[in-house]
Amino acid sequence: MEEKMKIKEIIVVEGKDDTVAIKRAVEADTIETNGSAIDEKTIEQIKLAAEVRGVIIFTDPDFPGEKIRKTIIEKVPNCKHAFLPKELAKQKNGKKIGVEHAKPEHIRKALKEAHVMDIEPQELITQQDLIYYRLVGDPNAKTRREKLGDLLKIGYTNGKQLHKRLQMFQISRESFVQAMEQIFQEEQINE
């Protein structure tokens, strides 16, 4: 039997089902937030985990998951972040989204690609770039943002949050432009 990949950092997830899914995929310890109303005791656990072993935040690719991520970032800034694209986190019937529905290989890939957000980012991509590349104010903007989040491994964001997320992860202009070219090429193929 193949030995499971070991994760040094403690993984922050939303609940027990996420912990079960993580442990199916890798050998790791988790902290469960038990929903988006994270109490101070849980924040203190995450702070200690960050000091001792490091932390990977791995929440669901939805609004509550992003809210949890944002709450933790404000209080524990140097965490790594792992993201799953929505389509890889869907329940078989497609009704629910969450880490607990992801296949072990997708969880392992997301954890391997986890990275730290920069808290004092430089602006490499401007708001004007988002308009130019039709990531805001366009009928297909949401689909493009989803694809961009997947390609750059930064997760999905709405139009307001995209600029901030690109800055926090210090996405290079070159990586951004390459990803957008790929998205536009796929759109042309699918027309």
Rank of each mutant, 00 (worst) to 15 (best):
I73P: 03
E105F: 11
D150V: 14
H115K: 12
P104G: 05
I97G: 06
P77D: 06
K160S: 06
G54C: 03
E105H: 14
Q128G: 04
I57V: 14
I72H: 03
I56D: 00
Q127G: 12
F83P: 13
R69E: 12
Q161K: 07
D62K: 11
L152P: 07
V99H: 09
R108P: 08
R173L: 10
A110D: 04
L48D: 08
E51R: 09
E105L: 08
K164W: 10
K86Y: 12
K90F: 03
N140T: 03
E74D: 06
V99Y: 01
K75P: 11
E105W: 09
L152C: 07
A114K: 08
E87H: 15
K160I: 02
R144N: 00
L148F: 02
T59M: 10
L135F: 02
F63E: 10
I46F: 06
C79N: 03
R108I: 10
K96F: 10
H106Q: 11
S172I: 15
H115M: 12
L135E: 02
V55T: 06
G137I: 02
K80F: 07
I57D: 11
A89V: 09
G149T: 02
L152E: 01
K112G: 15
K86L: 08
K47M: 13
P85L: 02
K86G: 11
H101M: 14
A141F: 01
R108F: 12
I119P: 12
V55L: 09
R53D: 10
K90E: 06
P61Q: 07
E123S: 09
M168R: 09
G159S: 08
K112C: 13
A141W: 01
K96Q: 05
R145P: 01
I72G: 00
H115D: 07
Y132G: 06
K109M: 08
S175M: 14
T143N: 02
T71R: 13
D129M: 10
D60S: 03
K75M: 05
L152W: 01
K153E: 15
L84H: 11
I107K: 00
A114H: 07
R165F: 00
